[in-house]
Design a protein around this nucleic acid. Structure first.
Lengths: 203, 203, 203, 203
DNA sequence: GATGAATGAGTATTCATTCAT
DNA sequence: CATGAATGAATACTCATTCAT
């Protein structure tokens, strides 16, 4: 009578606990003993479910991406035209409701820091970024095919817009005061217009 | 006759050593014993020149900014018109020679991570960003006064362009492969055109 | 109809797994989780078959001795005279084929280390040594009765020869290079001649 | 004004503490926290003077060998002829006073166990054995040159005698009861006679 | 018999910081 | 100024053992 496995659930509990702690203390600052306490588990159990701390970090990244992509796809699919989808993509990341989850944001910035150093994290982080960029690139390509965007390189444009979004994330996490209220999405759309030269302005 | 103080020099040596180590190992990963070894002096001496590790980090930030601003001002001042100065500003950060110093880039990303957590670092980081943004804002304001830029909020535009640059830094540090070759500066200029609607295109 | 008990078989599987791991990692270095993996079963099951880790070690010793004694008795019994039996005893331990099983050798050395510390292991180890020595002592006593050996204390002679063999084991396990090729059995026989002063030389 | 170094002294204190604990608890069983307590130092200081635990073990080996060789050379040099020097060599290791230091003996046996696994320990252990064997080999060679020993291979004879001594160490450490009182040195001399066929018996 | 989850004490090692000299 | 020793708390990770199913 094999016992039913609760691995997936426990792994998520542990990763969520790390996510929460990382937001305020960073990856290095989040001790596994704190993670265990936060998750209401013993420290030994953490290493029963994860080989090492890095593996938990990768699970955090996986969770963040999973949740992000699901919501992002929903937001984008509800928009009709490519131009509106680009606007939806920007609003999703930089609109009013985007700042609702500062925990995820701080966690994401911490992930950037670890991605520089830990090759395994870098690989997964790059894949995560690629997932997000692929979604935007597909929109741009549809807009180009439909001749509503006049843009030579959808790859470059995708990168530029994602860079802007990531940059706003950095500013929001480190120097919130330097961002004029509600300017992020609007400015980014203005920039998208310069980049994509759409027949109808993105707004 | 007291021997001449070498405080300033020693402080810079120590900060430079931390900068070098942070680039590859991050702030937490750079042990002060390693810093001492890298700087060619003893661990005890570090605490003679700095109260604690954070103070060295702040010195690193100061050094980075000092060097950055000096070179940036030189690059911008050599440009004639506001439009050309914006281009110079972008090229300085994202042009071909910008990637020449990966150490400073990785160090900067690490600083972002610490700025989230250590309030003292956050304050200085915000000031550093403000210095950079002030320089760009001044250019934009001149352009607006001279009616070569049609842009309602120079503050928002400044923020947007700096965000884009910071975002490219993040991508360059974590997922170099996702940036099409030489696209960063060009795309950013295209975006600047959308943002500033200049009489003559920025390029 | 209850399924047939596989206790004995499982115990041997587990002990064999520990034996294999001990050879390369030592007793302390062989984690029970590794033992379970090596034996192809789960960690929990190990403690169903053994009270604790030490009990597995004792089983390892029992297995090693059982196999050793069976082969040793066969080797000795095929020799005709006491002198030839002594030679067979030496050859069995130090001859060319003796080094064929480095796993058992390394395991034996590890057992020595544990015998120093764990009293239960020491007791069993002493019994094992006694079994081996009893076999040699019987040969020597027969030789003395038959007046082919001139030796006052068969106990001392037995101990001396077994000590030499154990010593060669130590050298073989730790410093293989210091033993001149094929010298072990020959030298030991020369020493046995000094010890037993046989009418016909042992060789 | 450089502070005078006490490294050598501290290293010896720490190694001595490990030696003492290893004798009863083995290498793995001797926790560095216990070593620190035994030496009356803090745990951190141990790692200031030694990179890791293995390095302490190597220092233990070095200390053991240093002390052993000094006393052994003194014992051997006080003997006049090669035959008497061989006797002195044997007595030094197996005579009545040899068992006076059970701590060093148990420690030596533990070292054997570690030499099997840790290559760095094996190398040093082999060198230590070689030092001891070189001393005996030199005696044998002098005896052969002087035609008082009739022995074809001094290397094999050296190995055989050292093996016997090591074997007695093993028996003494694990199964003291199996060694007839005072038989070790006498039996080994009898064996040496078989091996070296000296003109005058070794005794 | 067998599984897999859970425990909790233990371990080597790291490191910022202090301080006597 | 400078050294090197010393501290002590913290940290990730290991592992024999227990237990509910």
């Amino acid at each position: 009578m094999p016992r039913p496995s609760n691995r997936a659930q426990r792994r998520e509990e542990i990763a969520s606990a790390l996510m929460k702690l990382m937001a305020t203390k960073g990856y290095d600052g989040a001790a596994l003993s704190d993670v265990a306490a936060e998750a209401g588990l013993t420290q030994g159990l953490i290493h029963y479910h994860f080989r090492d701390k890095q593996e938990i970090l990768l699970e955090v990244l996986r969770l963040l991406l999973e949740r992000h992509m699901a919501a992002l796809e929903a937001a984008v699919q509800s928009a009709a035209s490519p131009a509106r989808q680009v606007a939806a993509f920007i609003d999703f990341h930089l609109g009013l409701s985007a700042t609702k989850n500062p925990e995820a944001l701080a966690c994401w910035i911490s992930l950037i820091g670890e991605a520089i150093r830990q090759p395994a994290v870098r690989d997964e982080f790059e894949k995560a970024l690629t997932s997000i960029m692929d979604l935007l690139a597909a929109i741009l390509k549809r807009g180009i095919s439909a001749r509503v965007f006049r843009c030579t390189s959808p790859e470059s444009a995708t990168t530029a817009l994602v860079a802007t979004i990531q940059g706003y994330f950095v500013l929001a996490a480190t120097a919130r005061n330097v961002i004029p209220k509600r300017s992020a999405a609007a400015s980014t759309k203005a920039m998208a217009n310069g980049l994509l030269k759409p027949k109808t302005s993105i707004r």
